[in-house]
């Protein structure tokens, strides 16, 4: 029998506590940068959680998920530009725009499968990208700055970094909760059934297309909210947040963390952004004893390490970080009771 509280659960609990207590650490050390970094991690984790719903649980390999980040962000920024600053208007609008886009894209692209599906979702994201580049009134290629963050009628002040961090964190936990409830519901079971064998699910009478489309729209909407958050975080939106390599980053997060697992995407976002942030320092540190002169420069080429690392993860560690944790808990569990 499996122990109820495994090593994996311990790590997840530590992650939750760690994320919740981060502002305390920042207050103690005065390391404001960590707060900015972690706000970004939490927001992108939310986007990854939403992608995981369709990619991990639904088996839909969407390669255009960054489009929703952009749509949510642009909706917020454009409303702010036009003088509507209330978050009670901006955020629901961001959700609605993303949901509508998801509905249109899903209805068309879910007719195809395999590589065709990958490519058609990508094509729609590219359309959103070019649409944003073409909007001369809203900055075009150069992007658009937010004059002020969303206001909530005095209820909370998002310009306070700690408040904003907690808002993002609560929304992240809420989306994880939502995904958890969804995947354990009848709807989620059907969705996972369709992932394993669509023909069989259709044969026993489930309208697979409608289930997939619903999942697709929910994921897009959730990611649109992350987009509204990221616009508030950086006070800036630009078409580049919808470029296809950004969608690639989101997929990397999901797979790196562990597809189809509840907390995998959070681990993935954490890992990828940490690598992005600290791999350069690590490389400089390793190179320094051999060649002190070029150590700092060597750190600039961190993607030279990250790229092959991704390939190695794909080849040898399919379960991602969550799979690794599960394996470790299995081993530790056996040690405790032989």
């Amino acid at each position: 029998m499996k122990p109820a509280f495994t090593f994996r659960h311990m790590v997840i609990a530590a992650l939750i506590v760690g994320l919740a207590l981060l502002p305390l650490y920042v207050a103690l050390t005065g390391d404001r940068f960590m707060l900015t970094l972690f706000t970004r991690i939490v927001i992108l984790a939310m986007a990854a959680v939403s992608l995981n719903l369709i990619l991990g649980y639904g088996g839909m390999m969407s390669f255009g998920h960054a489009a929703y980040l952009g749509l949510g962000g642009y909706t917020t920024a454009i409303l702010s530009f036009e003088g509507v600053h209330s978050g009670f208007v901006q955020w629901p609008a961001a959700l609605a725009v993303s949901a509508l886009f998801g509905l249109a894209v899903g209805a068309l692209s879910l007719r195809t499968r395999g590589v065709y599906f990958i490519m058609i979702t990508l094509a729609f994201a590219q359309m959103a990208y070019y649409l944003a580049s073409g909007m001369a009134r809203y900055g075009g290629d150069d992007g658009l700055s937010l004059e002020a963050r969303s206001t909530f009628a005095g209820l909370m002040n998002l310009s306070n970094k700690t408040t904003f961090y907690y808002v993002c964190l609560v929304l992240l936990f809420a989306s994880i909760l939502l995904v958890w409830r969804l995947t354990n519901s009848r709807f989620g079971m059907v969705l996972q059934g369709v992932r394993s064998n669509e023909t069989r699910m259709s044969a026993i009478g489930y309208p697979a297309f409608r289930y997939k489309l619903t999942g697709f729209v929910i994921a897009g909407t959730l990611c649109g909210l992350a987009g509204a958050l990221i616009a508030n975080h950086t006070d800036f939106v630009s078409p580049s947040m919808m470029f296809w390599t950004r969608s690639g980053d989101l997929i990397v997060m999901v797979v790196l963390g562990g597809m189809g697992t509840l907390f995998g995407p959070v681990f993935g976002a954490l890992a990828l952004l940490f690598l992005e942030q600290f791999l350069p320092h690590l490389i400089s540190f390793i190179v320094r004893p051999f060649n002190p002169a070029s150590a700092a420069k060597a750190g600039e080429y961190w993607q030279l390490v990250l790229g092959p690392l991704l390939l190695i993860i794909v080849l040898f560690a399919r379960g991602g970080i969550d799979g690794l944790l599960a394996m470790l808990s299995d081993k530790l569990g056996r040690k405790v009771r032989p």
Partner: peptide
């Protein structure tokens, strides 16, 4: 392997070659 693996692995290669 899965197409997802291809996308991810070769995405890593893009980063590698660019750098």
């Amino acid at each position: 392997r899965d197409h997802l693996d291809h996308v991810l692995g070769t995405f890593g290669l893009i980063l590698f070659f660019d750098e």
